[in-house]
């Protein structure tokens, strides 16, 4: 860990301004991802801005009939919220499928959205990695790629976004609220929040320098049956091989987002028209253009089979 300076921000706008002022500054929330990466010198911030005191930790109803989730709401609290459980069960289930009880007690909504890949080469600073060190190459291509992406990847990077919460948010059509260093605010639809790697895999989100997430807004509930199915090698405390977040309506229409297959929560709205025709057709449309490696090609049939089971479960 490199020496760094530390401050507690007084307000969201001040936090953003401070982050823009200092080169190499980072926000710290629960610290469950950032501190691990700092210990391994994968992240080497010069300055930490602690956002925990910013009073962004409440969940409120919006005028439109949705929910506004503060950036600092802990994963445990979000999953347990009665409104979330009733109207956005998908989100609650995705959260509870992630990490462990201890981690969820610390992990925040914004920190979770910002969590970085679990590509094992990203974690080893002896290895080339375009995400960690732009231009150094990608050790994972041609190497151990079983856990990595099958779709949306590039010649520069085949890492996945490892999160669960964001997959549910993608299916729910969430919007990320931010404040910029100049004090202005904006709303970023979750579809546009995470970026594909292209030839800049180190750029992972739409956030600008210093921009702080203040909340995530959920639109009014859409009803339907909510299922989050996370497939993994062991029963708990593991990242998804694939995950399926589905909202299925009585008439067989619905929405699907996938985790574990792409550099971002993967949803193809246009493909959802295929859902009533079943898992095979829907998977083919959602994963159209997939370019799996030899080691992770299994993820495509796995998505199809898992989606099939999810649709069957939704039918009851």
């Amino acid at each position: 860990m490199k020496p760094f300076t530390y401050e507690r921000a007084g307000s969201p706008a001040e936090a953003a301004a401070a982050a823009a002022r200092v080169q190499g500054a980072r926000f710290i929330a629960g610290g469950t991802n950032l501190l691990d990466l700092m210990k391994l010198q994968i992240e080497t911030p010069t300055h930490l801005i602690d956002v925990n005191g910013l009073a962004l930790d409440s969940i409120e109803a919006t005028q439109e009939g949705g929910l506004r989730i503060g950036a600092l709401v802990r994963n445990t609290d979000l999953a347990a919220d009665a409104r979330v459980r009733r109207d956005y069960a998908l989100l609650s289930r995705a959260l509870l499928a992630g990490a462990s009880g201890q981690l969820r007690n610390k992990a925040t909504t914004a920190g979770n959205l910002m969590q970085r890949t679990r590509c094992p080469y990203f974690y080893d600073t002896n290895q080339p990695c375009n995400k960690r060190q732009p231009g150094s190459g990608c050790a994972a291509i041609g190497g151990f790629s079983r856990p990595l992406a099958v779709v949306g990847s590039s010649e520069a990077c085949i890492a996945t976004n490892p999160g669960d919460m964001a997959v549910a948010m993608r299916a729910l059509g969430a919007v990320v609220e931010t404040v910029k260093p100049d004090g202005t605010t904006r709303s970023i639809p979750i579809a546009e929040f995470h970026r594909l790697p292209g030839d800049t895999p180190h750029v992972e989100t739409a956030l600008e320098r210093g921009e702080l997430i203040t909340a995530v807004t959920l639109p009014p509930p859409v009803g339907g049956t909510h299922i989050y199915r996370k497939v993994r090698d062991r029963a708990s405390y593991a990242f998804a091989l694939v995950s399926v977040a589905a909202i299925v309506q009585r008439d067989g229409t619905g929405r699907v987002a996938l985790g574990g297959v792409a550099p971002k929560p993967w949803r193809v709205e246009a493909a959802e028209a295929e859902l009533p025709r079943g898992a095979r057709a829907a998977t083919a449309a959602i994963l159209d253009g997939a370019r799996p490696t030899h080691e992770n090609a299994f993820k495509i049939p796995l998505v199809e089979r898992t989606l099939g089971a999810v649709l069957a479960q939704a039918r009851g």
Binding site: P120, D124, G143, R234, A235, A238
Partner: peptide, 25 residues
């Protein structure tokens, strides 16, 4: 231990990558 045969090392060299059973298993 996932072996990278090109580079000659075990890639999943921590307990997030090298899984052992947890209680739920």
């Amino acid at each position: 231990l996932a072996l990278d045969k090109r580079r000659g090392f075990f890639v999943n060299h921590d307990l997030a990558g090298y899984e052992v059973p947890v209680h739920a298993d």
